[in-house]
Design a protein around this nucleic acid. Sequence first.
DNA 1: CTGATATCAGCATAACTGACATCG
DNA 2: CCGATGTCAGTTATGCTGATATCA
Lengths: 160, 160
Amino acid sequence: MADHTPDTAHAEDGQPTAARLRKLPTRLMSLAAIQSDRLVNEALARADARKWHYAVLATLGEFGAVSQAELSSRTGIYRSDMVAVVNELAERRLLERSPDPADRRRNVITITRQGRARLRRLDELLTAAEDAVFAPLTAPEREQLTRLLTRLVDHHGRPM
Amino acid sequence: MADHTPDTAHAEDGQPTAARLRKLPTRLMSLAAIQSDRLVNEALARADARKWHYAVLATLGEFGAVSQAELSSRTGIYRSDMVAVVNELAERRLLERSPDPADRRRNVITITRQGRARLRRLDELLTAAEDAVFAPLTAPEREQLTRLLTRLVDHHGRPM
DNA sequence: CTGATATCAGCATAACTGACATCG
DNA sequence: CCGATGTCAGTTATGCTGATATCA
C-alpha cells in the first residue's frame, strides 16, 4: 500500500466505516453523486427549478424548436416523464407547446424569451453549485475528473 | 479549447445532447453513478443481495458484533432503514439478531458462518462489477478517479 | 429529565416499464 | 401492418423525516 490514506476514517458524525467499504470505488461514485445532486437540487430549488428543467431549457436554447420525443432523446429524460416537465415549464411560461402542423402526432416545443432569461439564471446557479461541489479540487483536478467521468459515461451508453 | 472532444456527440440510441449539458460535470457525476449503480445492483441481484446487504456484512466482517445503531453510523444507512436490512439478512441466516443483555435497548448483531461465506462471494461479484464499470480506464486512472472521489466525499461529510 | 435505541409510517424524487390512442 | 408520438398509470429503490415505546 503506497498511499497515505488511513485504513479507517471518522465521519464527523459517527463511527468509522469499514476499510473495504470506505474505499470501494463504486460506493464513492454513489456518495459523490448524492452530494453533488443535493447541492445542485438545492441551488435550482431556490429558483423554483429542477435539474430536468435545466436540461430541457438548455436543449431548447441550443437546438431551437423540437418535438418532445427529440427533447427526450437529447436529454435522456424518458418520454413518459417529459410530459410533466414540459407541463411545468409551460405553466411558468418558459416554453410553448403547440401542435406540429406537418405531423399531427408531434408537439413543437419552443423556448420563450422568459425561458431564455431563466436559462441564463439557472446557468449561473449551476456554476455556483458546481464550485461548491468541486471546492476541494484544483482546476486541473476538476478537468481531470470531468475527463474520466466523460470516458465512463460515453463507454456505457444511455439505456432507453 | 485544447482538448479533442467534439461539441456534440451522438448517443448510440438517439439525438446528440446539447454541448453545455453534455460536459456539465455534476451531470456526468449523476450519469456515471447511475450506470455504476446499475451494474453493481445487477451483479448483487444475481446473488439475491443488494448494496446495503454488502455494506452491513462488510462492516460486521471487520468489526464483529455491533448494535444496529453502530451499524447505521458505520455504513451511512439510516437507522430507520437498517431494520429492514437486518430483517432480510436474518431471514437468510447471514446474521443473527439477539438482545444485548448489558443494554436492553440494543440488539447485538453477529455475522454467521454463512454470512462470512456470502460476504466473500459478494466481494467477488463486486470486484467483477467494478471491472465492468471502470473498464474504459487504466489502473492508474482508476486510482486517480478513486482519489478524487474520496476527496469530494470526505469534504462534504455525511449528513445524518 | 435527557438521550439513545429499535421500530414503524410515510414522503419525495428518480429511474424505469407498460399500455394505449393517435397518427404517418 | 409497422412504428413513432404524446400521455397516463404504476412500480421500485432510495434518501430522508418524524413519531413512538423502551430503556440507560
